[in-house]
């Protein structure tokens, strides 16, 4: 049968992709754990929003993109930066505010940029970057390209006017943008259902005549496939898509918040931890006999070493020179 043939031909490629995605999720997990440690030691300042629990979203979706596509995100973007291929060293150095950081120490945790990789930033105002994504999509269409722009934002951004203005215009102008809502249920300490009249984000697409899909964000393969479909829709027809990806953050909103407490219970967090996207993918690969415990341990050790390396690199890097205070305010 055609399907069976396709599966046998594609199985090695698929396993290679899954292996790569597992490796990336592990790197993000270990990187974030190290970031939490460094934050506790006072080496990272300001706000620091960890991605632990949501790894499948960044990894699955970015594995569906090309190098010449644009990516833009909110302030919870360490995971996307790493999955996009920014070296862990320069991301950690940016968190430390060092001159070797991907934004030269001027952006910090919320403003990771890498123009070469078309990683167009972490942005700090909830929903404020959603119109920028449409602008990147507009530029693609203006130049007649077949790239896409992938835009990450949390479910809390859906209550912001910028989200609605942008979805409307993206649909009117037929922009190749994937609006990926990472619904982790809580905007800081406020449960989405307490502040949203429509709690299925995906339904908002109807108002803007836009394609939409609801995706299990704890399943990296589901995220990958949904993003592929959205990317194809954007490349071939220049049509935007709204993806609602249901996920969960295992940590507090930022480093200054507890894991649970007044707004969610310890039991809820523990229940969600059973859906850990990393264990799910590792379990699948083990079941299929393409990964054993030793192989998993080796991948994990590699991720831990990379995270430790990144901390060492960031620690040893210099602060920006005082003259950097006044550079980059204006371009030449």
């Amino acid at each position: 049968m055609a399907t069976a043939t396709a599966q046998t031909t594609h199985a090695p490629a698929q396993h290679e992709l899954e292996h790569r995605m597992l490796r990336q999720m592990l790197l993000i997990r270990r990187f974030e754990e190290k970031a939490a440690e460094a934050y506790a030691l006072g080496k990272i300042g300001g706000f620091c929003h960890l991605y632990i629990g949501q790894e499948a979203v960044a990894v699955g979706s970015l594995a569906a993109l090309r190098e010449d596509d644009y990516v833009i995100s909110s302030y919870r973007e360490h995971g996307q930066a790493l999955a996009r291929g920014l070296p862990a060293n320069v991301v950690m150095a940016e968190l430390f505010g060092k001159a070797t950081g991907c934004s030269k120490g001027k952006g910090g945790s919320m403003h990771l940029f890498d123009a070469g990789r078309r990683f167009m930033g972490g942005h700090g105002i909830v929903g404020g970057h959603v119109p920028l994504a449409a602008g990147l999509g507009f530029a693609i269409r203006y130049r007649g390209g077949d790239q896409v722009c992938l835009c990450y934002f949390g479910e809390a951004a859906v209550n912001i006017g910028a989200f609605h203005e942008t979805l409307n215009m993206a649909s009117v102008y037929k922009l190749p943008v994937i609006f990926l809502c990472e619904n982790n249920r809580y905007g800081m300490g406020t449960a989405f259902e307490r502040v949203a009249a429509v709690t299925d984000v995906v339904e908002h697409a109807c108002s803007y005549d836009m394609a939409a899909e609801l995706v299990n964000g704890m399943d990296v393969l589901a995220v990958n496939e949904a993003t592929r479909r959205a990317a194809e829709r954007a490349r071939k027809g220049g049509r935007p898509t709204l993806l609602e990806v249901r996920t969960y953050r295992f940590m507090g909103h930022s480093m200054s918040d507890p894991l649970h407490g007044v707004y969610r219970t310890k039991e809820e967090v523990e229940e969600q931890r059973k859906r850990d996207p990393i264990s799910q993918l590792a379990g699948k690969l083990k079941e299929e006999g393409v990964l054993d415990e030793a192989g998993l341990n080796a991948l994990d050790a590699e991720a831990r070493a990379a995270a430790e390396d990144a901390v060492r690199f960031a620690d040893q890097s210099p602060d920006p020179d005082p003259t950097e205070l006044t550079t980059h305010v204006l371009a030449d």
Binding site: G101, G105, H111, A115, T327
Partner: peptide
Amino acid sequence: LYESGGQI
């Protein structure tokens, strides 16, 4: 421009 360290 500033927060990207002069990249954009």
